[in-house]
Every structure is written in C-alpha cells, then in structure tokens.
Design a protein around this nucleic acid. Structure first.
Lengths: 195, 195
DNA sequence: AATTTCTGACTGAACCGCCGTTCATTCTAC
DNA sequence: GTAGAATGAACGGCGGTTCAGTCAGAAATT
C-alpha cells in the first residue's frame, strides 16, 4: 500500500537537493537518490518536476504563514507584533538553512513561481503584515497617514534582503541578531512618535 | 568585418526575449530571431547562452551604478542623496520595463548569477548606499549608532521589493510615485531627529 | 497452517523530444 | 580573388518521463 508520507519525504529530499544544486541543475533522479527511492516512484506522487517545487513552496509557505499568524495573535501591542514578525521571519530561516537556500535563492526564478503558484501564499504573508500595520495606525501608535501597502512591502523587502544576503554570504553570522535593529529602524520610520 | 555593436544588439534582443519568456524558456534561436540574425552568429560574439545573461547583467548594472554615483555626487545633503537614490532606482526601472522584468524576475535564479558573476556589481551598488549613510552619520543627520550595513540592506531590499511587486503586478501603476514615501519612511527610521 | 493467487507499489533501463552548440557552406565587401 | 562574417541544418547528449517487469505482502483457497 502507498506510504502516506512518501510525498513528504520526497519534498524534504527535494529541498536538500535544490539547496545544493539549484532547481534547474537538479535531476529528478538526484531527488530520488536522496530520498532513497527510484526515480519512477516520484511520478506516482507528483505529475511533473515542476509540481514538486510548487508543492514544496506552497506547503512550507502555508506553514510559515500559519505560525506567524499564531504568534502574532498572541501579542497585544501592534508594535510588539511587528517585532515578533521580524524575529520569527529570521528565526524560521536560521533554523532551516536548506529551506532558506531554496526560498531565498532558487525560488525566485521567473514566471512559473512568482506569478501563478506562489502568488496566493505570498500575499497571505503580506496580508498579515498589512493588518498589523493598520491595527497600529488605528491605535494611533503608527502614523495615521502611513501608506500601509508601501510600508508592508518595505518591511517584507527589508527582511527578505537581509535574509538573502545572509544566505549568499554563506550564513557566516547569526541572522537573528539583525532582527532587533531591523524592527527598530522600521518602527522608527512608521511610528507617530519616537520608539 | 565584424559589426562592432552586434554584441549590443544581441544583448538588447536577449532582454526582450528573456523578459517575455524567462531565461530557461528562451531558446538561443529566439534571441537570434529577435535580433534578426542566425543562431550561429550569436556564437561569434558569445561563448555560451549563459554568457549572454551574465554580460547583460554586468553591463546594465555597471551603467546603473555609474549613473547613481554621478547623480549622488551632484547632491550635497546626505538626506537628499538618499532621496535621489530611491528616485533614480525607480526611474531606471520604470523607463526600462523589459530590463526591469529581467532584473527583478529572471535574474534572481540561483547559484550562477547571484553568487559569482553578479556579486561584484551588486556590491558596488550597496557600496554607494553604504557610503551615503555613513556620510549622513558623520554629519550627524543620521543616528551615529545606526548599524549602517543593516540599514543599507534594508533600503535596497525595500526598493527592490517595491520594484518586484510593481513588475509582478503588471506595472499597473507608476513606480516613481512610491519613491517619496519610501524615502521618507526610511529616512524617518534612520535619522537622528525628525524628518 | 500451508499453499496459491492476486494486487499494486516500486523499479530503473530505455525512450524521445528538445535545444545548445558546431561547422561546412554561402555570401559580402574590399 | 579572398578573407572572414554570417548562415542554418544537423548533431549529440541530456534528462524528464514512461512502462514492462519485479516482488513483497495481503487475500483466498485448501
């Protein structure tokens, strides 16, 4: 009978392989070898090679967004929520270096992923940030005239760039150490009064 | 005799083709057709398909950095320099939509480009931002205890994300309109006193 | 319990379409 | 006439995908 968590094993193997070689330079047979199965077996669980990448991304992003939502909901103060988002963003990547490699470097390529498949998951993450900022604006802690959509993208972009630099720089330092300064600079930029 | 700006024509054709289909989904013959030459001719000027992409990136980035340096040098005030960088960043992309597509979406992929080839050009751009921030810290307009390297990455990341969203959203609005808010939020975040 | 039959997950060699690259040939400018 | 620029058909190998075959274990039969 079909092993119910074989797809998961394939995905985890794919993360390691893609992290090592990149998507286009990875053979399906490499993933199979890494997962300890035959290449044909992969096609019992995924229709195409692309589907592995898309599924991988969707699944990991969905988990990520869920955990961010959970942690954010546990905080009261909107400013603390922002700090939490930044801390968690960096922590997830630091704790999953291979996933970080795939998300930051491999998954950026073209059409296929950034449009289409991933749009939904990414925009869910943007939604979380957006809501927190609006909450802060409503409470008056954040400038009421802040262009929230722009600020959302700025924060995401800032975190994302820190993460990318960290990955490309061979993870030579602790990403989480950047969380506090990043949050502070951003909050100072968007708050109504000093931070 | 060899046409001295045929390489340039090939690069411009490649930008249009990559913008349309993405790098891995573009055939060398597509680039040739777009440039109005035979596919073999490309190999008189470039050793491989990869080399086209790398050259394209290097050349465009070098021009970009040069023009940013020039414009920044024309300003006195460090804060005005930051505003200038943001404005120019968005203006370059808005005026070159196909280049924007390639830079923001296609060139992100893996190993090959972000490490290796492009590292030098990207870090030159980071250097410009870094220097401006340090200048501002020296003049006291920017917090003297600002972690400049982190702030540099944040600004780049923020601009980059705005640009990527704009490209992925089919360029449905004017990117340059975001320049002022982005610069203001960032400056408020890094300045010693209000902006 | 032992034996046979059946099922379908798994395998991996082989297939085949694709496309980067080559190079024998043609064309062009001097 | 000749050099060398340009051509584009053909090559080759790469790698995603397929599928005929294997075999472990479940069900049926004795």
């Amino acid at each position: 009978m079909r092993d119910p968590d074989k797809p998961q094993q394939i995905i985890e193997a794919a993360i390691r392989v893609f992290a090592r070689n990149g998507y286009y330079n990875s053979r399906v047979s490499d993933i199979a070898r890494e997962a300890g199965i035959a290449s044909g077996t992969i096609y019992l669980y995924f229709k195409t090679k692309d589907e592995i990448l898309v599924t991988l991304f969707r699944e990991k992003m969905a988990q990520w967004v869920a955990s961010v939502r959970r942690e954010v909901a546990a905080e009261r103060d909107p400013l603390a929520k922002v700090r939490k988002i930044v801390a968690l963003h960096f922590r997830v990547l630091e704790e999953n270096p291979e996933l970080a490699e795939v998300l930051q470097v491999e998954l950026r390529q073209g059409q296929k992923f950034f449009r289409g498949a991933s749009a939904h998951e990414v925009s869910a993450y943007f939604g979380v940030i957006n809501d927190v900022l609006e909450e802060g604006a409503a409470s008056g802690q954040i400038r009421r005239d802040l262009p929230v959509k722009i600020a959302t993208k700025m924060l995401f972009g800032a975190m994302d760039q820190l993460a990318t630099s960290w990955v490309l720089g061979k993870r030579a330092y602790r990403l989480t150490e950047a969380a506090e300064p990043v949050a502070t600079i951003f909050l100072k930029g968007v708050c109504a009064h000093g931070v």
